[in-house]
Simulated scan of single mutants.
Amino acid sequence: MARYLAGRAVNLTHTFLDDETALTPETVTVTVTRAGATTATTTGAATRAGDVYTYSAGMLAEGVYLVRWDGGATAVDLVPVEVTGGPLFTITELRDSDDELTAQRFGTAQVRNVRDVVESEFQRITGRSFTPRTAFLAAADTPSPGGLLPFYDVRSVAVVGGVDAGSVLPVDRLGQFAYAPEIPADATGVEVAYGFTTTPPGIRRVGMLYARWLLMAERSGIPDRATSFQPADGGTYTLSTPGRAGAETGIPDVDAVLKGYRPDIINSVGVA
Score class of each variant (00 low, 15 high):
residue 3 R to I: 03
residue 3 R to F: 04
residue 4 Y to V: 00
residue 5 L to S: 00
residue 5 L to Q: 00
residue 5 L to V: 00
residue 5 L to T: 00
residue 7 G to Q: 06
residue 8 R to K: 13
residue 11 N to T: 11
residue 12 L to C: 11
residue 20 E to A: 03
residue 20 E to C: 06
residue 23 L to M: 03
residue 23 L to S: 02
residue 24 T to E: 07
residue 28 V to A: 00
residue 30 V to H: 10
residue 32 V to Q: 01
residue 35 A to F: 13
residue 37 A to D: 15
residue 38 T to E: 15
residue 40 A to C: 06
residue 41 T to V: 12
residue 42 T to E: 03
residue 42 T to G: 04
residue 48 R to A: 13
residue 50 G to R: 04
residue 52 V to S: 07
residue 58 G to D: 02
residue 58 G to M: 03
residue 60 L to Q: 04
residue 62 E to S: 01
residue 62 E to Y: 00
residue 70 D to Q: 05
residue 73 A to S: 15
residue 74 T to S: 11
residue 76 V to T: 14
residue 77 D to L: 06
residue 78 L to P: 07
residue 79 V to D: 15
residue 83 V to A: 03
residue 84 T to P: 00
residue 84 T to Y: 02
residue 86 G to T: 06
residue 86 G to C: 09
residue 92 T to W: 02
residue 95 R to E: 05
residue 95 R to D: 01
residue 98 D to F: 08
residue 106 F to C: 09
residue 107 G to Y: 05
residue 108 T to V: 02
residue 111 V to H: 06
residue 112 R to D: 07
residue 119 E to I: 13
residue 121 E to K: 06
residue 121 E to V: 12
residue 121 E to Q: 14
residue 126 T to Q: 01
residue 135 A to E: 11
residue 142 T to R: 07
residue 142 T to M: 15
residue 145 P to H: 14
residue 149 L to E: 01
residue 158 A to R: 13
residue 160 V to Y: 01
residue 161 G to Y: 05
residue 161 G to M: 08
residue 162 G to C: 12
residue 164 D to I: 02
residue 165 A to N: 11
residue 167 S to I: 06
residue 169 L to P: 07
residue 170 P to Y: 11
residue 174 L to D: 13
residue 176 Q to E: 08
residue 178 A to N: 04
residue 178 A to P: 10
residue 179 Y to I: 11
residue 179 Y to H: 02
residue 180 A to P: 00
residue 186 D to V: 06
residue 187 A to V: 12
residue 189 G to I: 12
residue 189 G to A: 07
residue 191 E to M: 12
residue 196 F to D: 13
residue 198 T to H: 04
residue 203 I to L: 08
residue 203 I to K: 01
residue 204 R to S: 12
residue 205 R to G: 10
residue 207 G to W: 02
residue 211 A to Y: 05
residue 212 R to L: 10
residue 215 L to I: 05
residue 216 M to Y: 10
residue 216 M to G: 03
residue 217 A to E: 09
residue 220 S to W: 04
residue 221 G to Q: 15
residue 222 I to F: 05
residue 223 P to W: 05
residue 223 P to M: 11
residue 226 A to M: 07
residue 227 T to A: 12
residue 229 F to G: 07
residue 231 P to E: 03
residue 233 D to I: 09
residue 234 G to K: 09
residue 237 Y to W: 12
residue 244 R to M: 12
residue 245 A to Q: 11
residue 245 A to P: 03
residue 247 A to P: 01
residue 249 T to C: 08
residue 251 I to D: 05
residue 252 P to S: 05
residue 255 D to H: 00
residue 256 A to M: 13
residue 257 V to P: 02
residue 262 R to T: 03
residue 266 I to N: 03
residue 267 N to H: 11
residue 269 V to D: 14
residue 269 V to K: 09
residue 269 V to Q: 07
residue 270 G to K: 10
residue 270 G to L: 10
residue 272 A to F: 12
